[in-house]
Design a protein around this nucleic acid. Sequence first.
DNA 1: ACACACATGTAAGGCGTTACATGATTCC
DNA 2: GGAATCATGTAACGCCTTACATGTGTGT
Lengths: 180, 180
Amino acid sequence: MQELSPTARVILGMLRLGARTGYDIKRYTDVSTRFFWGASYGQIYPELRRLGDAGLVEAEDEPPGGRRRRLYRLTAAGERALHDWLTSPGREFEYRDESLLKLFFGNVLTRDEVLVNLRRMRETTETALATLRGIERNARRDTDGIDYELLALEYGIGLTAWMADWCKATERRLSEAAED
Amino acid sequence: MQELSPTARVILGMLRLGARTGYDIKRYTDVSTRFFWGASYGQIYPELRRLGDAGLVEAEDEPPGGRRRRLYRLTAAGERALHDWLTSPGREFEYRDESLLKLFFGNVLTRDEVLVNLRRMRETTETALATLRGIERNARRDTDGIDYELLALEYGIGLTAWMADWCKATERRLSEAAED
DNA sequence: ACACACATGTAAGGCGTTACATGATTCC
DNA sequence: GGAATCATGTAACGCCTTACATGTGTGT
């Protein structure tokens, strides 16, 4: 059994959580995993076809009556593949941050230029934070026991808040150093 | 003037900081920007050639005497391109975390399975943290004024430490909830 | 003699985004 | 009637990693 492709992982998971069409999957990821695991149509639709060929999902066309669409659901094999992945070791996280790369090369810039970059970095982060908090407000409802989707969101909020705080503190530190 | 490719950005910066060969660039990034901006030979060498074609870097072959190698340096245009990029707005950070995706789908797993994943997530993070702290120890020396390379490293350490702490706290929280 | 670090490169393949193309239904 | 949303897909292109191929110099 071959390893699931990155997009296959989120597709199987989202189908398991109730998504039924490719469009659904895109919509769900956009307001939930997007922060740490996005997906685009250009990946989703071809991957759904491949998963069908591999027998991990089943498709059913639904033209009569409604709007043309293709409903997907997990097969038993798909369910198994999802569970196997979810309980397998896996890799490290990946983090790419252009703002940080610019900061790293700060010795090439003036202090003012660095401060401009830092402020921009903080503003971007604060925008992301506001988005996540907006999602959080809409999500709080069905809480019996632990909601792992919410837990992942809280991680995102905490992480982003840490980033924004770091920028703020560093801006202050640099500004003070500039007055020497 | 076309935008610099992602790898071109780190190449120009590293040349500016003193790297002279493709091998140098790889070595430097591996112990500095790797955490948030990696580069592999498969990207570096072809990109150095393209940058040469575009007139942003100049190459000089050095066969006589030593080991065969190609020394690169920034041209005036390269210097300008680097500075332009460093002072341009730029995009958001990208963050991809498979552990977090697994956590998100936690409702499909038992609490024990989730706890196993969380522990693995923490261990991976702690390993990364140890690596970064090792780099930090080797880096502390020439500090007159603000060292931005060190600042970026401290960001990485702080961020990673936050992640590890979050895992620890969440492990505790889930364990306690399990005793109900 | 052997291992390791220095050094350069290519090829194949996977992953991903963006833009484009198309069309139906629903809401105002 | 028009805009937004639902819905599916493809094509082009860019980025990246891994594995492979090759060879020299240095230290033990």
